[in-house]
Design a protein around this nucleic acid. Structure first.
Length: 185
DNA sequence: CATGGGATTGACT
DNA sequence: GTCAATCCCATGC
């Protein structure tokens, strides 16, 4: 994946990332769920402007934004749009394709659909931590590569309190690895 | 410097 | 369906 891919409008990138592959070391999965965030709407962290925390959201497209949620979970985002625009795609769920035994150890779960079916789950399964914040998704250690685009179902974003009505969630239709609640088909 | 809230998950009723 | 765990950082005094 190159920088031009991520430099486009965040809604396009969010849709196109479904079907792509995320790899970290020996563990990898196909993206089955994403959400778009943009500085112009209040649910985006960049909405408050440039702070030490949000600085990365305005950085070079293709940069990783990894932050801690609810004091416990690390969430993985891909910074989008041209440098200077605060926008990112939240990677919310994967279909595991490599390193499944490692994922089972890290997650303490056996079932395949429990390994990466949520934004906090997939970072645990891939061992992605806050130290990977601001690293490049073009060069690794976290890498995103192209895949086959599946049929997409669009819905509203999950777990937010502001701008809840925007249909900015993109899921692979019928996938068992999408997080709950599943969107209507 | 103190406080409060959050792009979640899993255990429990 | 309800609820606690737990930490980064923005905000306000």
């Amino acid at each position: 994946m190159n920088e031009a891919f991520f430099a486009r409008p965040v809604l396009e990138v969010a849709r196109d990332l479904v079907g792509c592959v995320v790899a970290h070391g020996p563990a990898a999965g196909v993206i089955v769920e994403t959400e778009a965030y943009h500085e112009t709407e209040a649910a985006c962290h960049a909405h408050i402007g440039l702070t030490p925390r949000t600085r990365v959201l305005f950085a070079t497209p293709g940069t990783a934004y990894v932050y801690r949620s609810y004091g416990i979970h690390a969430l993985l985002n891909a910074v989008c749009e041209p440098e200077g625009v605060g926008a990112a795609v939240l990677i919310r769920a994967l279909e595991p394709v490599a390193g499944l035994e490692l994922m089972r150890e890290r997650r303490g779960r056996e079932r395949e659909e429990d390994l990466c079916s949520g934004p906090g789950k997939l970072t645990q399964a891939l061992a992605i931590e806050l130290g990977e914040n601001e690293t490049s998704l073009l060069r690794g250690p976290i890498a995103i590569s192209p895949g086959d685009p599946p049929p997409i179902v669009v819905g509203t974003r999950i777990g937010i309190t502001r701008a809840v009505e925007l249909p900015w969630r993109f899921c692979a239709a019928g996938s068992r690895h999408v997080s709950r609640p599943r969107p209507r088909q």
